[in-house]
């Protein structure tokens, strides 16, 4: 018999467990209070509203950018998905200590369920984005087919970090404040409130370095493929389609690292807690 592990047992049980945990969390938020789910929708909208007022009326950052409100909203929704999934994942394994110490199940289910819950939220928030897109007169184009690919890549990136962070947090409790700072920095390092073209106009290398961040590449490509075909695609912003390999390999590397660390840590989690 094997001991505790990250992934073990039947794949069906693994999926059933992850879905059950994720759906329970989702349900708790949805039915927890009358306004429970309302707030999870309102949060990106509030942030969007504040940012929109600041950067269109006070600092005219988005003055000459077409579809600026849409770009801002979609950027905020995608960024918040990433930030929520990863920061909720940090504490996830420790918070489910009760399960970890009392039931044998593939440990990977825990960080996975967190990103799944966040993904349910993302899908609902995207409905709002689509409503705004329709209202702004964005045309349906063939490049919309890229959407599932972009979402899967984003989810993989978030899941990789979720595994890495939740495993590290078991032993190192300062992972949480560190990650809070990193997510804050990532918000400004990602072209959410500013279009990447404005960075490139001043310093092309800086723009290209910023675009190596998988999150930035995904958000930029979303803007190009879904909203504004006149905007730079992620490849163009990086200075060549082949350069897309850089954020892609970072994404794969982070996922692999997360998987490796979590797998390595999984048998010892119950002992360490």
């Amino acid at each position: 018999m094997t001991g505790p592990a990250a992934i073990s047992g039947e794949p069906r049980r693994f999926v059933a467990l992850a879905l059950t945990l994720a759906f329970t969390d989702f349900k708790l938020r949805f039915f927890g209070s009358v306004l429970g789910y309302f707030w999870t929708l309102v949060r990106p909208l509030m942030l969007f509203g504040v940012l929109y007022v600041v950067f269109s009326q006070i600092v005219p950052l988005g003055a000459n950018v077409s579809y600026y409100p849409l770009i801002l909203l979609s950027g905020v929704v995608l960024y918040l998905y990433f930030a929520e999934a990863t920061s909720a994942a940090v504490r996830s394994v420790v918070e489910r200590e009760n399960l970890v110490r009392k039931i044998h199940f593939p440990r990977m289910v825990i960080p996975l369920s967190v990103t799944l819950t966040a993904s349910f939220n993302l899908l609902l928030n995207l409905v709002v984005v689509f409503v705004f897109m329709a209202a702004s007169g964005v045309e349906v184009r063939l490049t919309w087919l890229e959407l599932p690919v972009l979402l899967v890549l984003l989810a993989l990136f978030a899941t990789g970090l979720a595994m890495l962070l939740s495993a590290l947090f078991v032993s190192y409790r300062d992972v949480r404040p560190i990650w809070d700072v990193v997510t804050q920095a990532l918000f400004y390092a990602t072209p959410v409130i500013y279009p990447i073209e404005q960075v490139a106009a001043r310093n092309e290398t800086a723009a290209q370095i910023a675009m190596c961040n998988p999150l930035a590449a995904i958000i930029q490509q979303f803007r190009y493929a879904m909203i504004d075909p006149s905007a730079q695609s992620a490849g163009e912003a990086l200075g060549g389609a082949w350069m897309l390999l850089v954020p892609l390999s970072i994404l794969v590397a982070v996922f692999a690292l997360g998987l490796w660390v979590f797998d390595h840590m999984a048998p010892r989690i119950a002992d360490e807690l």
Binding site: T2, R101, H104
Partner: peptide, 14 residues
């Protein structure tokens, strides 16, 4: 907990 697969065992077999 070792039997249940919650703890990893150091030596021996189950």
């Amino acid at each position: 907990k070792c039997l249940a697969g919650i703890y990893r065992v150091d030596a021996g077999e189950i």
